[in-house]
Design a binder for these strands. Structure first.
Length: 914
RNA sequence: GGGCGUUUAGCUCAGCUGGUAGAGCGCUACCCUUACAAGGUAGAUGUCGGCGGUUCGAUCCCGUCAACGCCCACCA
C-alpha cells in the first residue's frame, strides 16, 4: 500500500502478446481468479456492504443449453458491476437434484428402483448398468431393477449428480461466472433437507400447513398428486355423448351431453341452472342413470350454463373442479370409479337399502354389475368407448345421437402424458387462499425488473383456487418429518401426527423413530407408521434464500444476508419459484425474500419458438465458447434486455468477437505508444496523471467519457446491463475511430530530440489515452472479464496495485480542473470533437471518392463557417492536419457569419501525387 | 374470453419525460493508411403494424383493430 501512494515511481509495462488467443487467456485467468480468491465472499462484512444473490439452482439432469448460459451470464454482469462498486458479493451456486428428472435418471443409470418398504443397506454402492442392460427399456427394465431403500436411493443420487454438478461447474467457470464456489449447495444434501424440513415444521407451528383427505389433481402415470402451478391446459379433441336419463316414477326423460360417459357410474346428481325453464319442473325429483340404474337427485346449480350442451349436466366424482366444488358443498356420497392407476376400479352395486353403507346402490344391481363388469379394470379411454357402445345398444338405447366432436382444454401435469384425474387422497397443503391479500402486498414491496412482471405475479395470486399441495407420492425427495400413531385397532390416526424434533433434522421417518416409540413398534397396532410421502421440489427450492443464508442453522449469518438483494429467474416460473419463495419468506419471517427480482427472457429459435433443449443440445454452449470465446458468448447474452425474448442470432457472437479484438488492438496500440515513450524517457505514474492533460481535445475527450460513465452507471444501477453496454460500446468505437486517430501522431512525439512544447503536447495525449483505455477496461470488465483482466495485467494492476480489474473500483467521472473545462464543459467537449470529426470526415470522404488511400496528402483545405466555430476548430486543427495529412499552411478559413450554412462546409483539394 | 408483452431499414435490435428516425449485420464502391484486412473509409435503404383521436406538432400519449408470443380461464 505504501508503494501504491508513491506516484513518482516509474510505470511498468509488461511485454504483451501480438496475437489474441482467447482460449489461452481464459484458462489462465480462470486459474488466477480461483487461486487469488477474487470472488470470495467476506463473511465479516456488514449487510449494507454486501450484495446477495439468490442464484437459481439449475436442475441437474443432463446438460446445460444455451438458454442457461444466457440468463446466468446476465446475472453475472450485474454481480460484477456491484463488486466493482465495492460491494462484498455473496454469489452462491446451488444444484437442484430433487424431483422426477433425477429420479428417472438414477433409475436408468444404476438399474435401481426406490421402494420405501425396503430396509436400508449399509455399505451398499450402486453399480452402473452396462450398455447391454441399458438397452432394456420400459417394463422389462423395471422388472429387473433392484429395489433399494430411499436412503440408498439418495446415496445413488448423490453419486450421479455430483458428476453432473462438476460438468455444470466447469461450464459456469468457462463462461466466467464470478460465483464463490465455496458457497455451493445441492437440494438433496443434508443441509437443504434439513432447511426444507425446518420450513415445514415452522409452518406446522404457525398452523399454516394442514393435511386433508380430499379430491386432488392426480397424475395416473406418475401416481402422485400435483399442485395447481404444475398443471397446464392442453387442447384436445373430445366427443359429446348425448345420454338419455329417465326420471324416477314417471315416464319423463331428458338428455345430458357429456364428454365423459365413463363417469356415468360415478354420477351423484344431475343439475341445471335454477332459472332454466326446461328443467325447473324436474327439480326435487330423482333421475335414474342408464346402464346402472342409480337414483340421483335433480337439483338446481348456478354453475350450470343453459347455453352449453343441453343445459343439464351430471355431477360425477370427479370429472372436473366444478364437480369437486359441488360435492364439497353437498352431502352427497363419493362414488369413486377411477383408481390411482387411471383404471376403472372394481365396484359392486347393491340393492337400494337405506341401511347399507355402500354408495353404489342400484335399482337393478344385477344389471348394473353386468354392465360394470365390462369396464372394470379398463383404462378410462377404453371404458369411455365401451360405455358408449353399451348405451347405444338396442336394449338400452340411451345414446340419443352419434358422438359429436368438440375441442376442449384438458388439464395435464406438465410432465405427464395423460389427463389429470381428481382422486381423493390424503395430502399436505400449505394455506395460501386465505392470505392472498398479504401475498399481493409482499409482491408490491419487491422491485420487479422489468416492472410489468409484477402483473404476472399478481394475476397468478388472484387466480389461485387451491391451497398449495406439497406432498408427492414419489420416493425420492425430501421426506416429511412426520409419523402417525397406529391405534390399537390398527387404524392409522392421521389426526394426531407426530412431528420430528428440530434438533434431529434432517430425518427420514422410514428410518428414524418418533419420540417415545421404539423401532419394534413400527407399523403395528399401538405403534406408529411413517409418512411415506415426499415434498414437492418447489417446497425445497422455495427456501433457496434461506438455504443459502443458513436461516435457522446460523442466525448471525442469516441476519447478514437476508432479505437477499437479487433473485434472477425466468418468467414462466413466476407462478412457481417466485411465488412460492415469497410465500415462504412471508410465512417464516414476515419478510420479502429479495429486494429485486430480475426476469430474464427466453432465447427463441429463428421461428420464434422457445429454443428447445433438444435443439440447444445439438450445438452445445461449449462449442460456441470454443468458436467465439467466452467473452464473445457473454457479449451475446449482454445484448438482450431483461424480460425480452430474443431470437437466436449467431451473428452476435461474431460482433462480440469483433469488439473484443478491437479492444485488444486498441490496448496494444495505446500501451505500445506509452511503452515506446517510457523506453526513451522513463515515465512516472504522475506523468500520466490527468494533471498533464493540457490540449483542448485531450480535455474534451474525457469529458465525453465522463458522460458515458455516468449513463452506464445509471443503466447498470437499474440492472439494464444491455443499455449500459450499448453506450459503452458506442463510445468505444468513437474513441477508436475518431479520438485515437486524431491524436496518435501527436502522441508519438514524446521522444528524444523533440522540443519541450512538443513533448508537453505529446504527454497530454498519452495521459488522456492511457486514462481512456483504463476506463474502458473497467467499463467493459463486467462484460468481457477475461480480456479486460488480461489487458489490466499489462500495466494497470501494478500502477493501481489491484491484481484484478474485477476488484478495481468502478470508474467515476474524471474531474479536470476548472480552467481546463471552459464554461460550457460537456457541451464544449461535444462541439470541439464534433467539429474535428466533421472536418476529418470530409477529408476522408474526399479521399474515398477519389479512390485514394487515407494518407494521401491534401493540397488545400478550405473551411467555411462562423468565426465562433472557427475558433474551436483552430484548437484541434493541428491534430486534424496530422490525421488528414494536411499541412497547416494549406488550411484556409472562409468566414460565413450569416449564411444559410448549418455548421461548416469543407472543401478538400487533394494533391496530384503522394 | 381476460391479462401482459411485442410489432421501427432485407435481418437482429436501440430510440429516456412527444419536436419530421438510429446502430450493427447484410448490401454497394473504394482503400494494404506504421493498432487492427478477424481491418478501415464512404454510401444507399424506412408512409416507425392499420385506422381514428389529443396536440402547433406523435414512433413516443389516448382509443380501436390486426398479427405474433406468453400467462390465466374455458373440461357438462
Amino acid at each position: 500500500m505504501q508503494d501504491n501512494k508513491n506516484t513518482r515511481r516509474p510505470i511498468a509495462i509488461k511485454p504483451f502478446p501480438e496475437k489474441l488467443v482467447a482460449s489461452e487467456i481464459e484458462s489462465r485467468w480462470r486459474e488466477l481468479w480461483e487461486k487469488r480468491g477474487v470472488y470470495k465472499w467476506n463473511s465479516s462484512a456488514s449487510r449494507a456492504e454486501t450484495f446477495v444473490v439468490d442464484t437459481p439452482p439449475p436442475t441437474v439432469s443432463g446438460s446445460l443449453h444455451l438458454g442457461h448460459v444466457f440468463s446466468y451470464t446476465q446475472t453475472d454482469l450485474i454481480v460484477r458491476f456491484k463488486r466493482m462498486l465495492g460491494k462484498n458479493i455473496f454469489y452462491p451456486m446451488g444444484w437442484d437434484d430433487n424431483g422426477l428428472p433425477t429420479e428417472r435418471r438414477v433409475q436408468n443409470s444404476f438399474g435401481i428402483q426406490c421402494e420405501v418398504t425396503v430396509p436400508y443397506k449399509t455399505g451398499w454402492t450402486p453399480k452402473r448398468v452396462t450398455e447391454e442392460e441399458s438397452k432394456v427399456k420400459g417394463k422389462a427394465a423395471a422388472a429387473s431393477a433392484e429395489q433399494v431403500s430411499r436412503q440408498n436411493f439418495i446415496e445413488a443420487c448423490h453419486l450421479l449428480t455430483q458428476e453432473d454438478e462438476k460438468i455444470y461447474e466447469n461450464l459456469w467457470r468457462r463462461i466466467g461466472l464470478s460465483v464463490d464456489w465455496g458457497l455451493q449447495y445441492a437440494t438433496i444434501d443434508d443441509h437443504c433437507r434439513k432447511t426444507s424440513q425446518l420450513s415445514f415444521l415452522d409452518l406446522v407451528k404457525k398452523s399454516l400447513v394442514y393435511s386433508s383427505e380430499s379430491p386432488t389433481m392426480w397424475d395416473v402415470d406418475f401416481q402422485t398428486a400435483v399442485a395447481q402451478a404444475e398443471v397446464e391446459d392442453r387442447e384436445s379433441t373430445g366427443h359429446f355423448y348425448d345420454i338419455e336419463f329417465s326420471v324416477d316414477g314417471s315416464d319423463k326423460k331428458f338428455t345430458i351431453s357429456t364428454t365423459r360417459p365413463e363417469l356415468l357410474a360415478a354420477c351423484i346428481a344431475v343439475v341445471a341452472h335454477p332459472e332454466d325453464e326446461r328443467y325447473k319442473p324436474f327439480f326435487g325429483e330423482y333421475a335414474v342413470t342408464p346402464l346402472f340404474h342409480v337414483r340421483v337427485p335433480i337439483l338446481p346449480a348456478l354453475h350450470a350454463d343453459p347455453e352449453k350442451g343441453t343445459g343439464i349436466l351430471m355431477v360425477c366424482t370427479f370429472g372436473d373442479i366444478m364437480d369437486v366444488e359441488w360435492w364439497k358443498n353437498s352431502d352427497a356420497p363419493i362414488r369413486q370409479v377411477i383408481g390411482r392407476d387411471g383404471k376403472m376400479m372394481p365396484i359392486e352395486f347393491v340393492a337400494v337399502d337405506a341401511k347399507s353403507l355402500s354408495s353404489f346402490q342400484s335399482l337393478n344391481p344385477a344389471c348394473a354389475n353386468e354392465m360394470y363388469a365390462k369396464i372394470s379394470g379398463q383404462h378410462t379411454k377404453v371404458a369411455k368407448k365401451v360405455v358408449a357402445e353399451l348405451l347405444a345398444s338396442n336394449e338400452v338405447n340411451a345414446l340419443k345421437a352419434s358422438p359429436r366432436e368438440t375441442k376442449q382444454a384438458v388439464k395435464f401435469y406438465e410432465k405427464g402424458d395423460r389427463p389429470l384425474e381428481f382422486i381423493p387422497t390424503r395430502q399436505w397443503y400449505i394455506k395460501i387462499l386465505e392470505h392472498k391479500d398479504e401475498l399481493l402486498e409482499q409482491g408490491k414491496k419487491i422491485n420487479w425488473h422489468p416492472a410489468y412482471m409484477r402483473t404476472r405475479y399478481e394475476h397468478w395470486v388472484l387466480g389461485l383456487n387451491q391451497d398449495w399441495c406439497i406432498s408427492r407420492q414419489r420416493y425420492f425427495g425430501v421426506p416429511f418429518p412426520v409419523w402417525y400413531p397406529i391405534k390399537d385397532n390398527g387404524v392409522v390416526d392421521y389426526d394426531h401426527p407426530l412431528f420430528a424434533e428440530e434438533a434431529h433434522l434432517p430425518i427420514d421417518p422410514m428410518i428414524a423413530v418418533p419420540n417415545g416409540y421404539r423401532e419394534e413398534q413400527r407399523n403395528i397396532p399401538g405403534g406408529f407408521t411413517a409418512d411415506k410421502d415426499v415434498m414437492d421440489t418447489w417446497a425445497t427450492s422455495s427456501v433457496s434464500p434461506q438455504i443459502a443464508t443458513h436461516w435457522k442453522t446460523n442466525p448471525t449469518r442469516h441476519e447478514k444476508l437476508f432479505p437477499t438483494d437479487l433473485r434472477p429467474q425466468s418468467h414462466e416460473i413466476i407462478r412457481t419459484w417466485a411465488f412460492y419463495t415469497i410465500v415462504k419468506a412471508y410465512y417464516h419471517e414476515q419478510k420479502i425474500p429479495w429486494e429485486n427480482v430480475a426476469i430474464s427472457g427466453w432465447i427463441l429459435d429463428p421461428d420464434r419458438k422457445k429454443m428447445s433443449k433438444s435443439k440447444g443440445k445439438v450445438v452445445t454452449p461449449e462449442s460456441f465458447i470454443d468458436n467465439y470465446s467466452s467473452d464473445a458468448v457473454r457479449y451475446w447474452a449482454a445484448k438482450a434486455r431483461l424480460g425480452v425474448d430474443t431470437a437466436f442470432d449467431e451473428n452476435l457472437f461474431k460482433i462480440g468477437q469483433k469488439v473484443i479484438t478491437k479492444l485488444f488492438n486498441a490496448a496494444r496500440f495505446v500501451l505500445g505508444i506509452v511503452k515506446t515513450a517510457n523506453d526513451t524517457h522513463p515515465l512516472t505514474i504522475e506523468d500520466l496523471s490527468s494533471k498533464n492533460i493540457s490540449e483542448p481535445i485531450d480535455i474534451a475527450w474525457p469529458l465525453l467519457l465522463n458522460q458515458t460513465i455516468e449513463e452506464a452507471t445509471q443503466y447498470l444501477t437499474r440492472f439494464d446491463y444491455a443499455g449500459a453496454l450499448q453506450i459503452i460500446e458506442e463510445r468505444f468505437w468513437s474513441f477508436c475511430d475518431h479520438y485515437l486517430e486524431l491524436v496518435k501522431m501527436r502522441a508519438y512525439q514524446y521522444q528524444e530530440g523533440q522540443s519541450a512544447e512538443t513533448k508537453r503536447a505529446a504527454l497530454s495525449a498519452l495521459a488522456s489515452l492511457d486514462y481512456t483505455l483504463k476506463t474502458f477496461l473497467k467499463l467493459f470488465a463486467p462484460y468481457f472479464p477475461f480480456i479486460t483482466d488480461e489487458i489490466w495485467s499489462w500495466t494497470y494492476h501494478d500502477r493501481e496495485n489491484v491484481h484484478s480489474v474485477h476488484i478495481s473500483s468502478w470508474p467515476i467521472p474524471l474531474e479536470l480542473s476548472k480552467e481546463h473545462q471552459g464554461s460550457l464543459q460537456v457541451e464544449f467537449a461535444k462541439q470541439i470533437i464534433h467539429l474535428a470529426v466533421e472536418t476529418i470526415g470530409a477529408i476522408r470522404a474526399a479521399k474515398t471518392e477519389q479512390q485514394k488511400n487515407m494518407r494521401w496528402p491534401v493540397e488545400k483545405l478550405t473551411i467555411a463557417c462562423t468565426s465562433d466555430r472557427w475558433r474551436l476548430i483552430e484548437l484541434v486543427l493541428p491534430d486534424v492536419c496530422n490525421a488528414g495529412n494536411v499541412k497547416r499552411e494549406s488550411v484556409h478559413f472562409q468566414c460565413e457569419e450569416d449564411s444559410e450554412l448549418k455548421e461548416l462546409r469543407v472543401e478538400v483539394k487533394l494533391a496530384i501525387s503522394e
